[in-house]
Structure formats: C-alpha cells, structure tokens
Design a protein around this nucleic acid. Sequence first.
DNA 1: AGCACGCCGACT
DNA 2: GTCGGCGTGCTC
Length: 842
Amino acid sequence: VPHVRVAVPVPALEALTYAVPAESAPPALGARVLVPLGTRVVTGIVVGTDGRDDEAAGPTAARSFSSAIDDTSAAQVKDLLDVVDDEPFLPGEIVTLASWIADYYACGIGEAVAAAMPPRAWIESERYARITPAGRAGLATLPQARRRVLELLASGKPIRANVLARQGRGVHATLQALAAGGLVTITRPLVGQPAAFRTVRVAHLTAQGHGVQGAAPRPHAAVAPDGGVDAAAVDALALGARQRLALELLSGAPDGLHTGALAQKGVSAATLKRLAALGLLTITTRRVERDPFGHAASPIPDMTARLELTGEQTHALERLGALAGTGRFAAAVLHGVTGSGKTEVYLRLADEVVRAGRGVLVLVPEIALTPAVAGTFGARFSGRVAIQHSGLSDGERYDQWHRVRRGEVDVVIGTRSAVFAPLPRLGLVIVDEEHDSAYKQEESPRYHGRDVAVVRARAAEALVVLGSATPSMESYHNAQNGRYALIPLERRVLDRPLATVRLVDMREEYAAAGPDVIISEALAEAIRTRHERGEQSVVLLNRRGFATSVFCRQCGAVLECPNCSVTLTVHRAARRARCHYCNYSIGVPKACTACTGTYLEQTGFGTERVEAEVAALVPGLRVARVDRDTIRRRGAIMTLLERFRAGQLDVLVGTQMIAKGHDFPRVTLVGVISADVGLGLADFRAAERTFHLLTQVAGRAGRGAVAGEAVVQTIHPQHYSIRHACRQDYAGFYQDELMFRRSMQYPPAVALINAVVAAGTLDAALADARELVSALRWGGEPYRVLGPAPAPLSRLKGEHRAQFFVKGTHRAAMRKALLAVLQARPEIRRRTTVDVDPASVL
DNA sequence: AGCACGCCGACT
DNA sequence: GTCGGCGTGCTC
C-alpha cells in the first residue's frame, strides 16, 4: 500500500503518514488531501510520497520520515479520505522551502506550509450541534448550564459549536455531555471552497438591440401578435428615456457593460430586465479578478517615464545584470544611500530578467507605508504583475495568488509572505530595505523574509538583491566576507547633498531651561523658520501616546498593567491609560488606585504630547500625527500622507512609520525627539536599530531642490550609533558595532537562538528554563548557553517568562540539541517559544 | 451522584 | 489548533 507524508495544520507536529486507498491515485507532492485527524477531517499538504521520501522534501524531512515510520509501526496508519488536487497545489519548490523553514526555525511542518498557502485553500470539518426531540422534551428539567446551551439550539437549526462556545465557558464539555445523553446530535460537515471568483453581471446588446439602437421613438408601440418582437416591430417600439440610454451606452461597448457600471449612469436593474424581456439585450455573469490596485487611496503615481541613470546606477545595473545573466545563484547587497535611486535600478534589472523569460519577486517591508515601490512596479509591468500583502482582502489575495499559480504574471510584489509566491522560473528576488525588522515574523513560523528569500533564490539558481541605505549587520557581514557581492550607490541622484545634521545635547537644554523641555530651542526655531519659508518639517519620536506613566506623588505607586510588567501609557484623546503589549486599558484615574491620593502626575511623553507641543510653537501651524493610534482605519495613512504631500499640512509628527521610504520633496527639516529611545533597551540590536532609524529619517530631508537639515535631540550625543548616524557614516557604524557584537558574542559573530519559557509564576518559569539549560550543558557541547534569566518583559499577557540563549557557530547542532531537550519534556515544550535568529530578544 | 470546569496530551 | 478524557471541587 503506498503511503504519503502529510503536513496537517497543527502547530509543532511533524508530517503524518497516511495510506493511499487502492481506488485512489497517489497524490502528487504539494497536492491537498483530506485526512482524518482525531475526530476531525482536515486539509493536509502532501510533503513526501511513498516509502521513500521525495527528493524535493530535503534531507531533514527524509530523516524524520524514516524515523516516523519506525515510530508509527505500532500506531494505526489511517487512510486518506480524498485527494483534492490532481496536480500539485503548492509547487514542489515551495514545499521544499516550507520543509526548510520547519527544520531551520524549529517549527511544525504544518505551520510552515500554512504560511505558504493562499486564503480559502482549506477544507475542514466543523462541528455542528442540533437539538433532538428528546432534548426538546427534557429542556425544562435540565440543570442550568445544559439548559442554557439547549435553549440556544431550541429553534431546531444546527449551530456551529464554535459559535455556541462564544456564549460562555465550558460549552464544549456541555455539548459533549448533551450528546452522550442523546439530547443533541453532533454533525461534522465539511466546509470550505467558497466561490473562487467575484462574479459580475454583464449586459450585451443582441442583434435586435443593435437594430433598434438610435431609432427615434414612435408614438405607437408595435408588438407582434405572437408576443415576440421582430426586427421591424422593434423599430416601432416606444422606448423610455432610460431604456434608450441603456441601448446607447451598450452600443459603444462590444464587450458589454457591468450592470454596476450601468447603474451608476442611472440605468436600473429593472430597466435592463425589461429590455432583456424584449430580447434587446442579454445578461450574462462573468468571473472577474479583484483588482488590488483599484482601491488605492490615492492614484498610483505614474512613474512609467524612464529616468536617466547616473554613472553609478549604470555601473550597478551592469554588475547586477551580469550576475543575473549567469543563471546561477548569486547574492548582492545594493548599498545605496537614501535618494540614490535604487528603485530605478531594481526596475531595469527586473525588466532584463523578465525579458530573459524568468520571474521576478520583489519584497518590501510594508506596502501600506511604502506604496511608491509597489506602484512603480505596478505601472512599469502593467498587467503582468501581482501584489500580495496583508492589507488585501481574502478574496483579493486569493485572486492574486491564483494568477501567479496559473503563470499569468512575471512580477510579484509583496510583503514577507510573498516570498512563498508560486512564481515559476524564478530568476530574481529583490529585498528592498532588507534591514527592516518587519521582515521577521514574530509568531510561528518565526521566519525572516530576507533569509528565506536567499534560500529560495539559491534553490532556484536565481539572483537575490538585498537593497538598503543601511544594510543589516548580517548582510553587510556577508558582503565583507565575500559571500555576497557588494554594490555601492554613494551619491544621490542629481547630486543632491545629504541633510546636514545638528546634534542637540538635551542635558544642556535641561540645565538651561528646566527638566520639562520637550522641543529644544534649536528645533523650535528651525520649525518656525521652515513655516515662514513655506517649507515642511517632519518630527520623529518613536514612542506613542501622551504620557508614558502615571505616578502618585503621595505613595510613589506607578500605574501598571495588571497583565504585563510595564506601565500604562496615557492616551489623552482617547482618555484611556493603555498597555501597548496586551491592549488592556482603563479610564485615566483621578485618584491613586493604591492609596486613593489625588496628587497624580503624568510623566514621560510620546507623539501625542509632541504633536501638541509643536502645534503650540506657531499659531495656526497645521500639524498632523502619524502613528498606530491615528491610522487605525485602512487607508488613513495614505490620506494623511497625501495631504502632507499636497502641502495641506506644515508638520508631520510621528513614530518610525514616517521614517520609511516616503519621498516628500518639500520637506527640508527633520527633527528627532529623544533619539535615544531604544538605546536603553536590553536588546543587542538596540544600537543598530537606532542607527537605522536616524539615518533613514535624516534621509527624508532635502529630497527636493532645497537642501535638508536634521536636528537630533539626545542625552547621549557621544553614543556611537548617534554619532555615526549624524555623519551618515555607515562604514564607521558597522566597524564599531561589529566590534561590540564580536566582544559580546552576538550575531553576526555567532548564531543565536532565543528560548522563552512561560509559566504561571516567575519561579516556575525559571525552574523549567533551568532544567532545559542544564540538559543542554552536558560538557561537550559545541555551543554556549546563557541564562536562564527573567525575560526583559518578565510578565506578558498574564504569563511570567524566563529566557535563555544558545550561542555558537554550528546552528544546526544548536537547534538539534535544543529540540532533543524539548522533545524529552513535552510539558515544558508547549510553553516554550524558540526563536532562531531573533530580530529582538525582548 | 451529578455537574461544571480546567488542564493535559494526542493528533498518523 | 481542536478535541476528548480525566481529575477536582462544587452543589443539590
């Protein structure tokens, strides 16, 4: 009997073995299958076929496969229930990539495969409950919990168990008891596969309709005696104004018109129905793709005009083109200062690769924040480009994915999950702003989009280009090692100078003007000057809210989150004190919750406060704020940025969101409040993050004809990340930071794995972590283990957390040891989060 | 006893 | 993630 290995949507579970029933053809690698899983039926993906593992699943999968055969010799192997796809649903290349992720990031194969799946690809059984006659009869006499559930079912309609569960706790157990007593029946129908396409109704003129079109109305209607309408009679019809309008519109549209479009012109469905009854038009349904470019808040800028390349750009393009032309794997770091024209290089390179008949994948950190790159590619490769990101609806993502799968596009552009786009014949992967931490997924599978892109490019023998003004330590290190090519763009297009940077030592400011200063005199003056000149300013503070804590002067208590070890941030507009980690919030208290004292003081400040301070600088100054609090609604950020670009605002205050990729030609000043936010964090990337943020935001100034200036406020003017950012000295920062990483044994000097153990108390978490750590230290290990210690956020969402680190140069050995130790302790494993190559260790 | 509820382990 | 089994502790 042939067997298949199937990835099922369950975390931390390896592939399961199912038998292929005799009447079924063996499914292909990457095909969807329906399989029994416990009492459920779920969709799985075939990741290995027959007794031997498929070559595409890689050596690791092969190992786990054979061991699984041994493990399961006792367990019953179930038959798969159905093969959903005759052909692979996920291409073999993507199955391989998912297997690599499961192995490298130490997660379940199901999670890894799920990350690569489009929406609506899952078919699953869902539990429904229905009341029985016995249940109806016994309803009144039942104890409370059971009666409550039965009453919900009293209408007789089956209700989904998950829906019932929302009505209270313990519903699942109650349902089970009711079913055992014969008071309800449980059914498990398969659900999934909803309408794949949006359908629209399209009206077409018939031959008769063409005949009557344009004819002048006559006073006497002529309908043939048999009730039909012949060509001559049509001529004689008296048509209403709306009806004639419909025919007129349709006569100019040989492909027909959407009924929706006609409705907008005043032609109702009733009118069309009447015309259809007369035989003048027909209405058909047509499948359409949803257009993700269609509802952009602002028109996509027309950037189809090819810009003239600088000598540097030409040289970069030649080198990249040569690498792409080899048809072999290659990786290159495109290190281009802000405003050096990386996008134009990407576009031309992509064009070359597409002309050579290969696909191009473009990754960007967040499309909503950087629509320019997406828009430009959309325009330049019009019609042959697909877009993938989380801001799209399920339906839109579905359509885009299937267009790619059918081979209808040459270019895919999207956020990190687009790295799994089923693009055939991949020839080029571009990772724009490759240093951006948005590429790291902070939930399982905790993959890094940039690193997966490199792995995929290697498998596809493609070129991967990592572009940034401030490359990550890892990528630049690889370039220095010679593993990646390094291609610099050192000058801005049109030789526009980089912004001059002025450092303001806030300690001097506090000494002169008191400890409550938020905006230094230098920055205030610079903002006023810009306003007088009709130029714009951007002010950055990477901290949301109005005040960072509420402090009682009487007893010294600080308002803390009940679930997390952080203070609550005051959001004045919302009148709430809120936790930024678990979203807990309360109304801002008038009295201390500890001592009932009324002398409460709000300390610390965030963007909301800065917005108010900036607005107070100049009467009538038009200030807006961009942070997660002001852009909740989809498209809100686009609207704000458009108003700013159009000159309807003078100053934009915001968090790091405003530092990314935007091009505002009229911005000549960038202010940074508290440049050291983040430097105090217990994270080995703190300095790198600060350097990136400051360099990127300074790059926002002076992108037009007028030179830019940045004013950077800090209490650590001597810190190397701030010093180097002010000089825009990437190489200097890299050297200093690499020295720090080497001396402290952090990436890229070593590989790092972070493990966080959660438990009900900190002591329990520490004890469990200690057990894992001592098992990892057996004396001969080729790695070092640091910790355990309470995690920097020791309490998060109600759980206490302890963490430890594994450092070394043999990542595979580290991972293997950690997994073995966890596998032997399943009760600890379920509460442990393993993060390979963590982006942040907070 | 009957019931509600929460925890834990299995899922091929 | 979902489900079922089981132990605990409460109520009638």
